[in-house]
């Protein structure tokens, strides 16, 4: 039976979401999408810099992908809502990653404003995926507010420090009846696999792929790791034990 992740009316076969920040060239993006198998791709919305004109990154995201604008740059719910509405009106579809950040050192999200923005946007028909600090009560509020998934951070954005919040994420996976997507901090494929083994529905990876020496090869590595971790979760992993449990018969070779 196919293992499908259903979000916002889409049937996803890949559980790796890809962020598009920090690539040395936008031209890498379609190649990374292909190598990683990612079907959901995030972008940000910003004022045009009149002195330094860039390209429109959305043009580099293959058409079959779900384009998920984030609300990065928003410092409160109202700004997040404004960005989301603009992105949708610009033809970006109705998915949005809510990101409300006031803390510039650790880039930790404001959970309370994130809940408020989720309420407003879910009521307007958006498929809302809120980025949050892993906290059970907030996650419950996000679910009540109509979030399509909940995206707890593993460690601070871009830090490559892995699943520092593992125990809190585990609680969300156990308690919240929505897909839990680990977003931020995943620095290596083994950490993506670990999140998937725990039962995360997906992971969102950006920095670890975009800033690798070979982003296309790293995209493939993450795609494989996510698949492996998911397969292990579905296979049902045995518990860890303190002492050895013999894999071979414990009798002597020729004697009892």
């Amino acid at each position: 039976m196919a293992d499908i992740l259903k979000i916002g009316g889409r049937d996803l076969t890949s559980r790796l979401f890809l962020g598009t920040g920090k690539f040395s060239s936008n031209r890498l993006i379609p190649e990374v999408v292909k190598a990683s198998g990612a079907q959901v791709v995030t972008v940000a919305l910003r004022r045009v810099d009149m002195d330094f004109q860039e390209e429109n990154i959305a043009a580099y995201v293959p058409g079959e992908c779900v384009l998920m604008p984030n609300t990065s740059g928003a410092r409160n719910a109202e700004e997040a809502v404004r960005i989301a509405r603009l992105a949708r009106a610009a033809g970006c579809g109705n998915w949005v990653k809510i990101e409300v950040i006031k803390d510039n050192r650790y880039l930790l999200p404001d959970n309370q404003e994130t809940v408020r923005a989720t309420e407003i946007l879910a009521a307007e028909g958006f498929v809302v995926l809120p980025y949050m600090s892993p906290d059970l009560i907030t996650a419950k509020k996000l679910a009540e507010a109509g979030a399509a998934a909940v995206m707890p951070l593993g460690s601070p954005i871009g830090s490559n420090r892995g699943l520092k919040t593992k125990e809190l994420i585990r609680i969300l996976i156990d308690e919240i009846p929505l897909p839990i997507i680990v977003d931020a901090g995943i620095g290596r494929p083994s950490e993506a696999a670990e999140a998937m083994e725990m039962g995360a529905a997906a992971v969102l990876v950006n920095t670890a792929i975009a800033t690798a020496e070979d982003p296309v090869a790293m995209g493939r590595a993450f795609g494989l790791a996510v698949e492996a971790g998911r397969a292990a979760y579905l296979a049902g992993m045995p518990e860890a034990a303190e002492y050895a449990r013999a894999s071979s018969p414990l009798t002597g070779f020729l004697r009892d």
Partner: peptide, 9 residues
């Protein structure tokens, strides 16, 4: 306001 989609995670 003139805006554009840029890379982001």
């Amino acid at each position: 306001e003139i805006l554009r989609f840029v890379g982001g995670g």
